[in-house]
Nucleic acid binder design. Structure first.
Length: 574
DNA sequence: GCCGTTTTCGGCCCGACTGTTTTCAGTCG
């Protein structure tokens, strides 16, 4: 985890140097170094030296070594002592960048958001060079927006909104094609806004029509080829729409799908080949020719690259590994069964049979019923005796319904003191034992880590559910030494879950990638569904798994029932 | 600060939009 800390410090250093007005290329060099450290398949302490990573030379390597030995950077401390501590937070105000912050600080002595707000209200900002009345008003609005702190929108909420809006735009005359792009297309766990690319020969007319959509509550920007609006459907969400000619559509779609970092690498690549990539196509200056494409595959081929799915376009190695090392990402139809489901026996709303029928409809070959254990009284946790009676019901369902196998399992609490909620002789009787934490979130890192590791060391515990306990926008992950957890998972053959609940998505994509690449771990993707409807959340889980570079072999839910049982049994072998 | 089958110096991804300027800087994605 040392790499994570080093990357954080390097990014801080870059931010502070930017505010100080350092050479932007120097600032960028530190940002690139931070990314290189973050995305390296090999952790820093396993390298001969930081210089092995691309973009890291003598200077940055020395800073990294310092952070690795002392935990801090003297250079950063020094800049921090020169610049007021409130400046970096000014960067979070939309429309305000390092240059303007520098002027505000130099001319008005502004060192924080509150002071800026006062200066704006007093009308002192408009007189600065490069500022004016309009800019001052925009700043006031920017501060308001920042203070509202718009939460990022969950992917599961954004997807249906995007679909509805897409249908709206498709109906506008002269629209030839419209597709969502941006982080939504890359399937990030949350999105800030929706991006669309529209193909049309009549951009002005179409732009007009878009601003006239009834749900549009505000037109933020309205240029020749770009419209920014606020849409109010179930919630208010910013939407950016780019209008291009039909032959430019594919390049524009690629460009606005991003990520920004991926695009930078793509353009560098093109430049090496003597071309220029923009949202309009590939330009060859030598011959003054322009290339456009029928689909994205064609564009990647032109650049001599293998096709990269939107989910991995993050500059997290996809541009650096050889084509054969790019993952064959997990597909929806490879997923054969959900291993973490609740029923009325605890806090679910459906019966075992109803869950089995719904799962069969989705084409699954098996499921596991894993209700809560006795400790979780608020959720109606089951006693050992309840489990026996539930097993009888599961047996009956298995006899009644053909074509799907229902496994008997449990989601057992790891108690606050680290003990497990059932003795081994109870666990031994079950097909699938999931262990998880629902209490003592505030405990210290060592203690929480020990609780999870203790559970993994039990020979009957197959899976650790939602390992970090985070809830997106609601609760931070609890303190955990994940390196230790990953190491123990590897040694004991314990499987870690990617919980597909849209608020959890836990493990997150970066942990999945690291767990796979550094530790060779196997994962299980489960919905934790409490109703037949929420079985559909598996889509979110699959999306995050793909963003974590997972392939079918990395996920036990793609195994046949036989393979699955064999893999679960490996736990006994240690 | 980093980097080099054109380079050890002079570059470093590209374009739209806004608001401030009268030809462009700053910000954003």
């Amino acid at each position: 985890m040392i790499s994570v800390h080093v990357a954080v410090v390097l990014k801080q250093l870059a931010d502070m140097m930017e505010l100080k007005g350092e050479n932007p290329f120097k600032v960028n060099a530190y940002r690139r170094a931070a990314r290189a450290v973050e995305n390296s398949r090999t952790p820093l302490d396993s390298l001969k030296g930081p210089e092995e990573l691309p973009g890291i030379g003598k200077g940055t390597a020395a800073v990294i070594r310092e952070i690795m030995t002392t935990g801090r950077s003297e250079q950063l401390e020094k800049i921090k002592s020169q610049l007021p501590s409130g400046l970096p937070e000014l960067l979070t105000i939309p429309g305000l960048g390092p240059k303007s912050i520098h002027v505000l600080y130099r001319e008005l002595g502004i060192t924080g958001v509150d002071e800026l707000q006062q200066a704006v209200e007093a009308g002192r900002v408009r007189h600065l060079s490069g500022f004016g009345e309009k800019k001052e008003r925009n700043l006031a609005e920017g501060i308001r927006q920042r203070n509202k702190r718009p939460q990022r929108i969950l992917l599961v909420q954004a997807l249906p909104l995007a679909e509805r809006l897409q249908e709206r735009i498709e109906k506008i005359p002269h629209v030839k094609r419209v597709e969502p792009a941006g982080s939504l297309r890359r399937r990030k766990e949350t999105v800030k806004d929706l991006d669309f690319v529209v193909a049309t020969e009549q951009p002005r007319q179409v732009a007009e029509a878009i601003t006239a959509i009834p749900e549009v509550t505000k037109v933020v920007n309205h240029g020749e080829t770009k419209v920014s609006i606020l849409i109010e459907m179930e919630l208010v969400i910013p939407v950016d729409i780019r209008l291009v000619r039909p032959q430019q559509f594919v390049s524009a779609l690629h460009h606005f799908t991003g990520s920004k970092e991926h695009n930078v690498r793509i353009r560098q690549r093109a430049k090496e080949l003597g071309w220029k990539v923009s949202e309009y196509g590939i330009h060859e200056p030598a011959t003054d020719r322009d290339f456009t494409f029928q689909d994205e595959q064609e564009m990647f081929v032109k650049l001599g690259l293998p096709y990269m799915e939107p989910e991995i376009r993050e500059d997290r190695g996809e541009m650096d590994v050889p084509a054969e090392r790019l993952p064959r990402l997990l597909q929806r139809n490879e997923y054969r069964g959900d291993l973490h489901l609740h029923t009325r026996w605890s806090d679910g709303i459906a019966t075992v049979e109803e869950m089995a029928v719904a799962a069969k409809k989705r084409g699954y070959s098996y499921i596991a019923i894993t209700d809560h254990s006795q400790f979780l009284k608020v959720a109606g946790g089951l006693t050992a005796d309840d489990l026996k009676r539930q097993r009888e019901e599961i047996d009956r369902v298995n006899e009644k319904i053909a074509g799907i196998t229902v496994l008997a399992g449990v989601e057992m609490d790891i108690l606050p003191d680290g003990r497990l909620d059932y003795p081994d002789d109870v666990l031994q009787e079950l097909d699938v034992v999931i262990a998880s934490i629902h209490s003592g979130f505030q405990q210290e890192k060592a203690r929480l880590t020990r609780r999870i590791i203790g559970a993994m060391e039990n020979p009957y515990v197959h899976i650790i559910a939602h390992p970090t306990g985070r809830l997106i926008n609601r609760r931070e992950p609890y303190a955990l030494d994940l390196d230790e957890v990953f190491q123990t998972a590897k040694e004991t053959g314990t499987i870690l879950e990617l919980n597909a609940n849209p608020f959890r998505l836990d493990l997150n994509e970066q942990y999945l990638k690291r767990g796979k690449e550094e530790f060779g771990l196997t994962f299980s993707i489960n919905t934790d569904a409490h109703s037949p409807e929420t079985l559909s959340h598996i889509g979110m889980g699959l999306a995050i798994a793909r963003r974590g570079w997972l392939e079918a072999d990395d996920v036990i839910n793609t195994y046949s029932l036989e393979q699955l049982q064999e893999r679960l049994a490996q736990k006994w072998g240690g």
